[in-house]
């Protein structure tokens, strides 16, 4: 579904991503793990066209998307949940969700999708009228994921959904991520919490200094001594 070939991302003279190639199949949950600064987030941003790729190609559903405008990406069916959540603090929860459905014009569909999101995250329904800035970090992460789902994406890109959250909240968020995946969503997940990412993905790529150094089935990587030593702290 998503094919990334020879992707380069550079900031000024600094190479953040050096020629990486990977793919995500329809219905798969794939994790991209690695240490801080390994280039995971840059990879995701390049796919979402938030940053320009310095080289390489990105194809989505057999269509080249590496040169389209940033606001067109979501119309192709890719929704990014940005690092740090990026909720609109001074819009209400409802308005944030409606922003997620910005590309949908049918009010009935939007209302229906909102019920789907509320089913995943009942907490958001309780807080519907509150300003997003008054939510806790975990609730904001729920809102960010819910907002991304509102666009009826074919694929979800999650950038560090566990960042800065209490363990109990992380658990809740990942329960929903699993549920969304079980409902057929294709997911590319970026996590510093490698164990968590490997536990809820089918395949994973390990990045180091802008390159993919390992890849394989998540269950096998969990048992790989190198991964255990480097990323699982054992």
């Amino acid at each position: 579904m998503l094919e990334v070939t020879g992707l380069h991302v550079a900031y000024g003279g600094i190479q953040a991503v050096r020629s990486i190639t990977f793919h995500v199949g329809a219905g798969e949950t794939v994790a991209l793990i690695g240490a801080n600064g390994a280039g995971k987030s840059s990879t995701l941003k390049a796919i979402a066209r938030v940053v320009d790729a310095a080289g390489g190609d990105i194809h989505f559903c057999a269509e080249k998307i590496s040169r389209i405008a940033a606001h067109e990406v979501i119309r192709k069916g890719i929704a990014l949940v940005p690092e740090g959540r990026g909720v609109f603090a001074r819009l209400s929860v409802l308005e944030n969700l409606r922003m997620g459905a910005y590309i949908c014009d049918a009010a009935a569909e939007v209302a229906q999708d909102m019920e789907t999101v509320f089913a995943y995250f009942p907490r958001l329904k309780e807080r519907a009228r509150q300003l997003a800035g008054t939510l806790s970090g975990g609730e904001q992460q729920m809102l960010a994921i819910g907002r991304a789902l509102m666009s009826r994406p074919k694929m979800l890109l999650l950038d560090e959904p566990s960042m800065g959250l209490a363990p109990i909240m992380v658990q809740k968020i990942f329960e929903v991520v699993r549920a969304v995946a079980a409902d057929g969503m294709t997911i590319l997940l970026i996590e510093q919490n490698a164990r968590l990412a490997l536990q809820c993905s089918q395949r994973a790529y390990v990045m180091e200094s802008g390159e993919i150094v390992l890849n394989g089935e998540s269950a096998k990587l969990l048992d790989d001594p190198k991964v255990r030593a480097a990323y699982l702290g054992e």
């Binding site: 938030v50 940033a70 067109e72 990026g86 609109f88 001074r90 819009l91 997620g100």
Partner: peptide
């Protein structure tokens, strides 16, 4: 209106508004 909401969202965070499909 939707345009108004997009304007308020853009004022708060243009990068994320663009992710939602708003042409900044």
């Amino acid at each position: 209106t939707k345009l108004g909401m997009a304007m308020r969202a853009t004022a708060q965070n243009p990068a994320v508004a663009s992710l939602m499909g708003v042409n900044i």
